[in-house]
């Protein structure tokens, strides 16, 4: 069975799709059906509204999520009342979502449920900490549409990325765009020395010079137009705690003192840079690394787009696999 064993090596897994209808829910279903729950206690939730029977945007049929007996889950009050399984309520949280409070329960029989868990990253993290007390070994998060933030290593240790014809119906573009996201997810971790120096810094832009001295550039974000990069002749590392954007990267590339600089970001979800700008920066000699990295376990594809376009599954898998050097699966075919 592809990649199921890989998942078991981690405490948490998030499944994210690059676009609606890229097969994220199918992928979750695939994983839930195959996990050895006799030996692993599994808890499942979703960030934001998910698990509707019918896709709210494209009106296409969406698979419902089937839980197996013994699985734990978090969902909203509204969806809990609509469950089609027998389950034991363990907790009702104080945090409310648009669908009511988030409840945690354990499935006593198999059955269908709509998932709509904690709505923000921080409440999700709190819920995950809580599940530890229940003796959960693996938490699975059904990520929200095009919100990669739920796959942030700050939340989950490992991830599965779902892509497909819905993201782009042109096979070349699809491979290219997916490969770029995979490239970002796989950005190298910076060295231990930088890690220990930067890990606790949560805002601003900082530099580290050749002698290892840390300096605050007194700029809140890389979006700012007033970033002064003067006096950084001996700078070897630039740390951007928040979002990394095109304009900043361009500025660094154009500065002759910063040709070989290493830019460190918190994790790949903070990189908001177009592929062109990213490549130009790397080609000029720069490097981008991260403080935290999550393990990309697999990429899944859905060759069918909701508009009716169907790509050749084996060609797509082959091309993508070649481009990203990772196993790629079409779960409906397997």
């Amino acid at each position: 069975m592809p990649f199921i064993n890989d998942i078991l090596g981690y405490d948490s897994l998030s499944i994210v799709g690059l676009e609606k209808n890229t097969g994220k829910t199918e992928c979750l279903k695939y994983v839930l059906e195959r996990l050895p729950i006799g030996t692993t206690r599994v808890a499942v939730t979703s960030i934001g509204i998910d698990g509707e029977a019918v896709d709210q945007v494209t009106r296409t049929q969406k698979p419902e999520i089937v839980l197996r007996e013994g699985m734990y889950f978090a969902t909203s009050e509204t969806h809990y009342r609509q469950r089609k399984l027998v389950s034991e309520l363990l907790d009702v949280s104080n945090e409310t979502t648009s669908l009511g409070r988030v409840v945690t329960a354990k499935a006593l029989t198999a059955g269908k449920i709509m998932l709509s868990g904690p709505s923000s990253g921080s409440s999700l993290k709190r819920w995950m900490e809580q599940t530890h007390d229940l003796g959960i070994n693996l938490t699975i998060i059904d990520g929200a549409l095009s919100r990669l933030s739920s796959a942030s290593p700050a939340v989950s240790q490992s991830m599965i990325l779902a892509t497909g014809a819905a993201y782009s119906a042109n096979i070349n573009t699809l491979v290219q765009k997916t490969a770029y996201v995979v490239h970002l997810i796989n950005l190298e971790k910076t060295n231990e020395k930088n890690l220990s120096m930067l890990m606790s810094i949560e805002k601003g832009i900082w530099s580290i010079d050749n002698e290892g001295k840390l300096k605050n550039l007194n700029t809140a974000t890389s979006l700012s137009q007033q970033i002064h990069l003067e006096g950084l002749e001996n700078c070897s590392v630039l740390y951007v705690a928040g979002a990394l954007v095109d304009s900043f990267l361009e500025k660094v590339r154009r500065d002759k003192h910063l040709r070989n600089v290493e830019i460190v970001v918190r994790d790949f979800t903070k990189v908001f840079v177009t592929p062109q700008v990213f490549n130009q920066f790397v080609n000029a000699g720069g490097r981008i690394s991260v403080l935290q990295k999550s393990k990309l376990i697999a990429v899944t594809v859905n060759p069918t787009s909701p508009s009716g376009y169907i790509l050749d599954s084996s060609v797509l898998c082959g091309r993508l696999q070649e481009a990203i050097n990772l196993p790629v699966y079409d779960l409906l075919k397997n």
Partner: peptide, 27 residues
């Protein structure tokens, strides 16, 4: 914790056991 426990009704207990044994009759 809470759910409508099996011990509230023998029939309920029976049906739930059946549900586990015959998933195809779940609905």
């Amino acid at each position: 914790t809470f759910y409508v426990y099996d011990s509230y009704s023998d029939r309920l207990k029976e049906l739930r056991a059946l549900m586990r044994k015959q998933p195809e009759r779940q609905e």
